[in-house]
Design a protein around this nucleic acid. Structure first.
Ligand SMILES: [Mn+2]
Ligand SMILES: [Mn+2]
Ligand SMILES: [Zn+2]
Ligand SMILES: [Zn+2]
Lengths: 138, 138
DNA sequence: ACTTAAAGGAAAATAATTATCTTCTGCATA
DNA sequence: TATGCAGAAGATAATTATTTTCCTTTAAGT
């Protein structure tokens, strides 16, 4: 927790109760949409404005403190920036999880085939989570 | 060209001049946003409605005739559905290109690590295209 | 405590998407 | 080839999403 606030500060983002709450929500729930965040914060800040959520997420994204995650068929999710990782999405229960995989092989192939210089990768794998797999076969 | 119209028909999509134009735009330009499409069609159909573009793209997506491609920092692009492939995006000139790479290795690793059953992958690699690389170092 | 730049909140402004309704047309059928 | 009709186009309104404005409040440095 402390780390995140320090980090916020280091990114020239003024520490406010609303921002602390946003960081806590993201830290504890992981991948949240704007609406998710707003609903979560409403409980703690009954008067918070949706514009505040947008403004803060945009500011934090600007400073690369949070990152947008675009997922097929879903609203964008936001998460605290962390080491590069891929995502798995369950098309049944909609949950989104991090997955750390080695990208060297595919990155090399992409560079080789495309002749692009690659600085970033966004990898999303969609399917069924273990729970929904069993539920489906039942 | 003919193929696409046959395909449209096979997807129970009625053939109209506007739809033919949408397919042609997508076939010749590849990855287009709603706005791109609208602007392109406006030249041929000065009275076309933006709603018509939305409705058609949605209908075609519904039938899996076209696919949405979500790209970081950009509006969604649409393309004619084709064999699964990844995308490279130039952060400088914004162009989007297809790239065919082998996904078996990474797919196996994702399945292994996450225990998800994976049905689909959306891979976007962002960087600099060959032209923008040289331009940048100049 | 004082000062000030920045942040919050409410509301307005924009942008994006969808819905409704009327007119038109692709296309199946006689 | 003529006819009927489901579905598509166009115009517009309505929703929904996102951003901006404006004024008040507050974090944080002095
Ligand atoms: Mn993540
Ligand atoms: Mn493509
Ligand atoms: Zn699931
Ligand atoms: Zn380029």
């Amino acid at each position: 927790m402390k780390d995140n606030l320090e980090l916020l500060k280091s990114y020239q983002l003024k520490i406010t109760p609303q921002r602390i709450a946003i960081v806590e929500e993201l830290a504890s729930h992981g991948h949240l949409s704007i609406e998710d965040l707003y609903q979560g914060l409403l409980e703690r800040f009954p008067t918070i404005s949706l514009a505040t959520v947008y403004k803060n997420i945009n500011a934090m994204e600007e400073k690369a403190f949070v990152q947008e995650v675009k997922i097929p068929e879903q609203k964008s999710k936001y998460e605290l920036t962390k080491a590069n990782h891929a995502h798995v999405v369950c098309q049944e229960c909609k949950k989104v999880e991090d997955v750390v995989v080695s990208t060297k092989v595919i990155l090399d192939e992409v560079k080789d085939v495309s002749h692009y210089q690659i600085d970033r990768d966004d990898l999303v794998f969609t399917g069924l989570c273990p729970e929904c797999v069993v539920r489906q076969s039942a």
